[in-house]
Design a protein around this nucleic acid. Sequence first.
DNA 1: ACTCCAATGTAGGCATCGACAACTTAGGTA
DNA 2: TACCTAAGTTGTCGATGCCTACATTGGAGT
Lengths: 198, 198
Amino acid sequence: MGYHHGNLRDALLDRAEQVLATDGVDGLSLRALARDLGVSHGAPARHFRDKQALLDALALAGFRRLEEALAACPGNWSDRLRGIARTYLDFAAANPALLAVMYDVKHHPEASDALRAEAERGLGQVVDAVRDGQRAGGVVDGDPGELATALFAAVHGVVQLALGNLLEPDETDRALVTVLTISLRGLSPSPGPARPAG
Amino acid sequence: MGYHHGNLRDALLDRAEQVLATDGVDGLSLRALARDLGVSHGAPARHFRDKQALLDALALAGFRRLEEALAACPGNWSDRLRGIARTYLDFAAANPALLAVMYDVKHHPEASDALRAEAERGLGQVVDAVRDGQRAGGVVDGDPGELATALFAAVHGVVQLALGNLLEPDETDRALVTVLTISLRGLSPSPGPARPAG
DNA sequence: ACTCCAATGTAGGCATCGACAACTTAGGTA
DNA sequence: TACCTAAGTTGTCGATGCCTACATTGGAGT
């Protein structure tokens, strides 16, 4: 532990994620991170040319962790779809500020590509489940990517409303269930009788 | 035009919305606004105690305009639901940065309440249409608020993905149509045969 | 084992910003 | 007409992001 830190980059990311969780993205400053790590205010620039570059790295790591969690959802296609939705919502609730950073608009172009690619892989989980659903006769014909995108978007909407504090926790849970119920029924080739919500 | 501007508050909001549209929320600074309006850097504080207070006012105005646009959607319940979705997406595409401010998490508590109330009124448009749909026999029984929230969330998800540049423009349009198709089919008491997407 | 260089960290400085405080102006009202 | 308060001004402070010039050091290549 002398002049050179040894692993500043990872240390910065770790600390940044802590700060993000406690103080939100506005509480995040490169200089404060440097202070926290006992390093000069110019050091972070050696690893992230920008503050945005750090946020991009944070976002990328977030997508990877999310995707990992989604991939761990077990069961048949229907279970997996519901599990993915639930897992996504839980992840968002546990890391609200991170999610905001992940979906932020102002990434650097290169990072933006990487982020899109990573998000695409996450969507892949949904596509696979939808395809399985089609094979099992539980999902209508049609481009699986198209259907999966729509399904993911619907869940994403609930998550975003929850993050924006526009839904109370209990409202959020009900909304997720309702969205899933409606969507899966809408996707079914032969929907059964409706079970009223509420 | 002397010492007192006369209508600084409105002027600030107007200019702020311009800057928001051109430079995004990061390009927005109270001092720059003051400069643009030929006023000292301390003047804005007389009308907005905070930068956040200005953003809150911007967000509130945005919700009002959005709601106004949504209320103007004509037709029967089905037309209105589709029109509302389209209008929402168009509004978002035309004012991406504004929408981000509207759904930002870090509002002042008082403003937050006002914003929630305004958003609630916007949702009211959807609730009304859903209720009409139920009366017309096109929507299943159940709490209209619950169903409307789910429907709005689904559309909101598409909008948010579009704003995050995770959907190309043409993908966005298709996703909106698919979400609506799936959701309205899922809401129907007796869904007809599926029409494959794509 | 020695040299050197590129990666990494330091130090200082600059422009900008948001917020605050003290002061000034003027428009409306008692 | 006097004044009082809303609105605007000026100055300042601390913090931040970013840039440039400089220092250190570990390790690659001989």
